[in-house]
């Protein structure tokens, strides 16, 4: 009997990479996930930001930001929440917990997948905006958009993860949509906030999507005010939902 239970750092890193690779591959091969998540926001932008807005207008720049926010939330909520709910029901999570998978690899795999998808959404929207929408962005702003997309996914991963611990199986996407769509509306992602009733405007900072939208607006150059409060608000959302989700996972598995 051999007794090797220590793993070289190289092999541990390899396990994380395999987990990330598998998580990305399985979703790239799942059109039912990848198409709605990437195309929803792109199609909306093409309709409202390109067809119904004059090229190069403020509207087309503003909508590029808000549909980017809308599009980036999707991979976080659904990539994390829906898959967690299904894997809890199907027993995959149990198997992974029984196997000597490095702790955290499961979550990091999903996180990297969601970040990659978030960047893909941003790239698709940027291509539409910079060509068809006639929006001009210097390279620094393009990079700011990509970074906002990649990091902006994270609070929604945490929120999705929490929703994924509330119920098992195929019911999760429905519940996630009940969170996703009203939250997008109430954060001014579809209609500018000033067109909403005052009480709803006042309530907007409750939603994490509102704060992410302030960052994407700033990235395309139409934002105002300090960014740090929004970054802190998003970090706090992420921390709270991550804590709630891990606590529930530990209790209910």
């Amino acid at each position: 009997m051999h007794a090797t239970t220590t793993m070289s750092p190289r092999r541990v890193a390899g396990a994380y990479l395999q987990e990330i690779r598998s998580e990305c591959l399985r979703y790239l091969r799942a059109p039912g996930f990848i198409l709605p998540v990437t195309l929803f926001s792109t199609v909306f932008y093409l309709m409202f930001g390109v067809l119904l807005s004059p090229p190069g207008s403020d509207a087309s720049r503003y909508l590029l930001a808000s549909y980017t926010t809308f599009g980036v939330i999707g991979p976080g909520l659904f990539g994390f929440g829906a898959s967690l709910a299904i894997e809890r029901e199907g027993g995959l999570l149990t198997l992974k917990r029984a196997l000597p998978m490095p702790p955290g690899a499961y979550l990091i795999g999903k996180m990297v997948m969601a970040m990659g998808m978030g960047m893909l959404v941003v790239v698709l929207l940027l291509v539409c905006g910079l060509t068809l929408g006639g929006v001009h962005l210097p390279p620094s702003r393009v990079l700011a958009m990509l970074a906002t997309g990649a990091l902006g996914v994270l609070p929604f991963c945490a929120l999705g993860m929490f929703v994924g611990t509330l119920l098992k199986g195929q019911g999760a996407p429905g519940l996630l949509n009940l969170v996703y769509l009203p939250m997008a509306f109430l954060s001014g992602l579809w209609l500018p906030l000033r067109l909403l009733p005052r009480p709803l405007q006042a309530m907007a900072p409750v939603w994490p999507s509102y704060h992410l939208n302030q960052l994407t607006l700033a990235a395309v150059g139409v934002g105002r005010g300090a960014l740090l409060p929004h970054v802190l608000a998003l970090a706090a959302f992420a921390a709270v939902f991550l804590a709630l989700a891990t606590r529930r996972l530990r209790r209910v598995g």
């Binding site: 598998s22 591959l25 399985r26 979703y27 091969r29 799942a30 299904i86 894997e87 029901e89 199907g90 027993g91 995959l92 149990t94 198997l95 029984a98």
Partner: peptide, 9 residues
């Protein structure tokens, strides 16, 4: 395990 739905793709 008795049941484990591994990633289909």
């Amino acid at each position: 395990l008795q049941s484990a739905a591994l990633p289909a793709t």
